[in-house]
Protein backbone atom coordinates (compact mmCIF):
# COMPACT_ATOMS: atom_id res chain seq x y z
CA UNK A 1 0.00 0.00 0.00
CA UNK A 2 2.75 2.41 0.95
CA UNK A 3 4.27 1.80 -2.45
CA UNK A 4 1.06 2.76 -4.25
CA UNK A 5 0.67 5.79 -2.04
CA UNK A 6 4.20 6.93 -2.76
CA UNK A 7 3.90 6.42 -6.48
CA UNK A 8 0.33 7.44 -7.12
CA UNK A 9 1.32 9.97 -9.79
CA UNK A 10 3.41 7.40 -11.62
CA UNK A 11 0.48 5.01 -11.53
CA UNK A 12 -1.67 7.69 -13.16
CA UNK A 13 0.96 8.03 -15.85
CA UNK A 14 0.98 4.28 -16.41
CA UNK A 15 -2.77 4.02 -16.83
CA UNK A 16 -3.07 7.05 -19.11
CA UNK A 17 -0.08 5.90 -21.17
CA UNK A 18 -1.66 2.49 -21.70
CA UNK A 19 -4.75 4.05 -23.23
CA UNK A 20 -2.72 6.57 -25.18
CA UNK A 21 -0.58 3.80 -26.67
CA UNK A 22 -3.66 1.88 -27.78
CA UNK A 23 -5.30 5.01 -29.22
CA UNK A 24 -2.24 6.10 -31.14
CA UNK A 25 -1.63 2.73 -32.76
CA UNK A 26 -5.07 1.41 -33.52
CA UNK A 27 -5.48 3.30 -36.79
CA UNK A 28 -2.15 2.45 -38.39
CA UNK A 29 -2.19 1.01 -41.93
CA UNK A 30 -0.59 -2.42 -42.35
CA UNK A 31 2.06 -0.87 -44.60
CA UNK A 32 3.56 0.85 -41.59
CA UNK A 33 3.54 -2.07 -39.17
CA UNK A 34 7.22 -2.88 -39.59
CA UNK A 35 8.55 0.70 -39.33
CA UNK A 36 6.21 1.34 -36.43
CA UNK A 37 7.43 -1.71 -34.57
CA UNK A 38 10.98 -0.59 -35.23
CA UNK A 39 10.21 2.95 -34.07
CA UNK A 40 8.58 1.67 -30.89
CA UNK A 41 11.63 -0.53 -30.42
CA UNK A 42 13.83 2.57 -30.49
CA UNK A 43 11.60 4.39 -28.03
CA UNK A 44 11.86 1.71 -25.36
CA UNK A 45 15.58 2.36 -25.61
CA UNK A 46 14.72 5.09 -23.10
CA UNK A 47 15.91 2.45 -20.64
CA UNK A 48 19.35 3.95 -21.41
CA UNK A 49 18.50 6.70 -18.93
CA UNK A 50 18.41 4.12 -16.15
CA UNK A 51 21.74 2.79 -17.35
CA UNK A 52 23.27 6.27 -17.29
CA UNK A 53 21.98 6.88 -13.76
CA UNK A 54 23.35 3.54 -12.56
CA UNK A 55 26.68 4.21 -14.23
CA UNK A 56 26.89 7.75 -12.91
CA UNK A 57 26.25 6.65 -9.35
CA UNK A 58 28.67 3.75 -9.24
CA UNK A 59 31.53 4.26 -6.81
CA UNK A 60 34.95 4.48 -8.37
CA UNK A 61 36.18 1.35 -6.55
CA UNK A 62 33.13 -0.79 -7.23
CA UNK A 63 34.45 -2.51 -10.32
CA UNK A 64 31.55 -4.91 -10.78
CA UNK A 65 29.05 -2.04 -10.79
CA UNK A 66 31.30 -0.05 -13.13
CA UNK A 67 31.69 -2.87 -15.61
CA UNK A 68 28.05 -3.93 -15.55
CA UNK A 69 26.96 -0.29 -15.77
CA UNK A 70 29.31 0.32 -18.67
CA UNK A 71 27.92 -2.72 -20.45
CA UNK A 72 24.35 -1.57 -19.87
CA UNK A 73 25.15 1.90 -21.26
CA UNK A 74 26.56 0.29 -24.42
CA UNK A 75 23.57 -2.04 -24.80
CA UNK A 76 21.08 0.76 -24.19
CA UNK A 77 22.80 3.04 -26.69
CA UNK A 78 22.74 0.25 -29.27
CA UNK A 79 19.00 -0.03 -28.77
CA UNK A 80 18.39 3.71 -29.12
CA UNK A 81 20.79 4.58 -31.92
CA UNK A 82 20.37 1.38 -33.91
CA UNK A 83 16.60 1.52 -33.48
CA UNK A 84 16.18 5.06 -34.73
CA UNK A 85 18.63 4.67 -37.62
CA UNK A 86 17.03 1.42 -38.85
CA UNK A 87 13.58 3.01 -38.67
CA UNK A 88 14.80 6.04 -40.57
CA UNK A 89 16.29 3.80 -43.25
CA UNK A 90 13.02 1.98 -43.67
CA UNK A 91 11.01 5.18 -43.85
CA UNK A 92 13.42 6.86 -46.22
CA UNK A 93 12.05 4.53 -48.85
CA UNK A 94 8.49 5.59 -48.36
CA UNK A 95 9.19 8.96 -49.90
CA UNK A 96 6.62 9.55 -52.60
CA UNK A 97 8.30 9.24 -55.98
CA UNK A 98 7.35 11.39 -58.88
Amino acid sequence: MAFIHQHIELIYIVILSIFLGIEVISRVPAVLHTPLMSGANAIHGVVIIGAIIVMGQAEADNYIALILGFLSVILGTLNVVGGFVVTDRMLEMFKSKK
Binding site: H7, L10, I13, V14, S17, I18, F19, L20, G21, I22, V24, I25, S26, V28, H33, L36, M37, A40, N41, I43, H44, V46, V47, I49, G50, I53
Partner: peptide, 20 residues
Protein backbone atom coordinates in the same frame (compact mmCIF):
# COMPACT_ATOMS: atom_id res chain seq x y z
CA UNK B 1 14.11 6.01 -10.36
CA UNK B 2 10.85 7.92 -10.16
CA UNK B 3 11.59 8.83 -13.75
CA UNK B 4 8.63 9.97 -15.82
CA UNK B 5 10.20 9.78 -19.26
CA UNK B 6 11.25 6.16 -18.76
CA UNK B 7 7.78 5.40 -17.55
CA UNK B 8 5.88 7.05 -20.41
CA UNK B 9 8.27 5.73 -23.04
CA UNK B 10 8.18 2.22 -21.64
CA UNK B 11 4.45 1.98 -21.08
CA UNK B 12 3.62 3.58 -24.43
CA UNK B 13 5.68 0.95 -26.19
CA UNK B 14 4.26 -1.72 -23.92
CA UNK B 15 0.66 -0.95 -24.82
CA UNK B 16 1.26 0.05 -28.44
CA UNK B 17 3.38 -3.05 -28.94
CA UNK B 18 0.64 -5.26 -27.56
CA UNK B 19 -1.94 -3.73 -29.89
CA UNK B 20 0.42 -4.06 -32.83
Amino acid sequence: YNNQVMLTGGILVGSAGTIL
